[in-house]
């Protein structure tokens, strides 16, 4: 690691996508930002930019953020063509300015996919993911007192794989990175997490079919196994999940009910 003093401030040339609304024409606007501290996170750098814009009476850059500790999946921007920036396994909020040098030009764009329309500047509408989850990404349980510990034995390997899949924060970087705008990595993580665990078995066949049909209905693209989704994933969701999704989908087609209601996102109640 380069040891840069916190006092060394940088000047950056930013090219930021500005778009007034969902139907407005957008374009990249140039901003020169002085006094960037290398210890700042990328979002803090944008905060500084926005403060300066506000003081000048201009509209600040709209971008999504929430936890700023890399676990909520809110931040959604493409930095120099890379979703969440150039660092591997890192959300944009956990990207720090020490990875940039004085005088560097940084291009910041919103996630691009038909299923994620731009609402304003860097903010995109990711509710398509919510509708995919609503279509089947849950388990139906009878609530009551909590079950006894170890009442449901789960093999260590399965628990690990399920947990790995469950680390998906649903940020949409996979869709943003994909040249087809496909959501396979996201859907595969959500399907895998439940298909691997005993609690997910009851709705296993129905779930994968409904989620895949909803994914298609939301205008996500088709997977061509390029693998840039896994490269861009801040949580390192593996491509093996996509293979599992393909398997689960085929299994559902072969062994499942003859047809499943297509994509309105409603809970259809009891499984087949």
């Amino acid at each position: 690691m380069k040891s840069k003093s916190s006092n060394t401030h940088m000047t950056l040339h930013l090219k930021v996508w500005r778009q007034k609304g969902p139907h407005a024409e957008g374009k990249l606007c140039d901003y020169e930002l002085e006094g960037v501290n290398p210890d700042m996170s990328f979002l803090e750098m944008l905060d500084i930019l926005n403060q300066k814009l506000i003081l000048k009476g201009e509209e600040p850059v709209a971008f999504e953020h929430d936890c700023r500790e890399g676990i909520c999946g809110s931040c959604s921007m493409v930095i120099d063509g890379n979703p969440h920036g150039p660092q591997k396994s890192t959300t944009a909020c956990q990207l720090h300015m020490r990875h940039y040098r004085d005088g560097q030009t940084i291009v910041i764009e919103p996630f691009r996919a038909k299923a994620f329309p731009v609402m304003k500047d860097l903010v995109v509408d990711r509710s398509a993911f919510d509708r995919v989850i609503q279509s089947g990404g849950y388990i139906s349980v009878n609530t009551g007192s909590s079950p006894d510990g170890n009442a449901l034995p789960i093999a260590k390997e399965k628990a690990d794989l399920a947990f790995d899949a469950a680390t998906c924060i649903g940020c949409g970087a996979c869709v943003a990175a994909c040249r087809n705008g496909a959501a396979m990595l996201f859907v595969s993580a959500k399907v895998s997490q439940l298909a691997l665990l005993p609690q997910g078995q009851a709705e296993r066949s129905e779930r994968v079919a409904k989620m895949v049909y909803q994914m298609d209905a939301e205008d996500f693209g088709a997977c061509t196994n390029m693998g840039s989704c896994a490269g861009a994933c801040p949580k390192d969701i593996s491509l093996e999940n996509i293979a599992r999704l393909n398997r689960e989908f085929m299994r559902s087609m072969v062994s499942g009910r003859k047809s499943y209601p297509r994509g309105d996102g409603a809970n259809e109640g009891s499984p087949a």
């Binding site: 090219k15 063509g81 890379n82 996919a113 994909c178 861009a232």
Partner: peptide, 16 residues
């Protein structure tokens, strides 16, 4: 489904 690409080409594992 991918109407617009980015103005900068992505790097390393984030590319295809």
């Amino acid at each position: 489904t991918k109407p617009k690409f980015y103005s900068v080409t992505p790097m390393r594992e984030k590319s295809a």
